[in-house]
Amino acid sequence: MAKKIKVLAIGELAGNQLSPGTRELLGGGRDLADSLGARVGIVLLSESAGKTGAEAIAYGADEVYQAEAAFLKNYQPEVYLQVLEKIVKKVGPEILLLAQTATGRDLAPRLACRLKTALAPDCVALAIDPDSGLLRMTRPVYGGRALAVLVCKTRPQMATVRFRALKSREPDPSRPGEIKPVTPELDQSKIKSKFIEKVVEEVKGVPLENARVVACGGRGMGGAEAYALLEELAQFWGGAVGATRPACDSGWVSSARQIGLTGKIVSPNLYLAVALSGSSQHMAGCGNSKMIVAINKDPEANIFSFANYGVVGDYRRILPPLIERLKQVRKGPKD
């Protein structure tokens, strides 16, 4: 008899591919299933699955529950909940994983209610306890000041996982696996909300999540104009500019550029933290950067306990000569 599906992931598509977070769920889910001697399943809901089923198998899934329908084109909670509740109850996994994305954080709490189980949201580590065989779910609490480890008493043990917390595997196109089409059914009378439209706010330049270098400014920048300096600085590496929540809430920078607990999570090679205090809520979004460099007037600022290198001073006097020097190097000795 085939081994049971004990770990089930709910995937998301980005265009005609799996989203990066979904690949990570499969990589991390695979590790959990291997230590339980079990199989990994994934649910993919879409208008048209294309080759994503095969992609999921290459990234570690043993079974793909694939539901395709026009009404699954855009995420709508009551539509997705109905379809997912049925599939999850049928598969009956021990562990159910979602990515902590705009969709995952909306969907998971309500799905947990319908499955009468708990949910550990925004986990940064998952591991099987070798003694009990239960899932230990680690998540930051108190704005990242502390870490909590939770064990769920009900089934499935359900978690949403923060981006970059789990590692995707190298895809193996020769991995065996099975795609199981599911016919989604919909009871229209239970739909209480409707997706109207998506408005994309264009952000110039490199996407934050992919940038090798990120220059981020905080409340101490003092206004929207000051971010031009950060643009110039980041440009040297072809990097991107981010901002803290207070700076976005003040309207200085588009919230699409917000880094932190309630914004984007980045882990660049170099994170230039300028005029930001380094609150735990902000560090939740950049703490995994390979190198952090802080520029801040306040020598007591929390950011210096995260930074590898720091300059104590006013960014207005430090950034212009710094940028000038970098530009000279770029031009080379001939100029």
């Binding site: 189980t117 708990a118 550990a120 230990r136 930051p140 609490v141 000041r145 502390a146 870490l147 909590a148 480890v149 939770l150 064990v151 769920c152 008493k153 009900t154 952090i292 306990s305 995260f306 930074a307 590898n308």
Partner: peptide
Amino acid sequence: ARCELVDLYLPKRET
């Protein structure tokens, strides 16, 4: 509670 809090600790920082 459906979840048990088995541990709560401060993360170590070595930087």
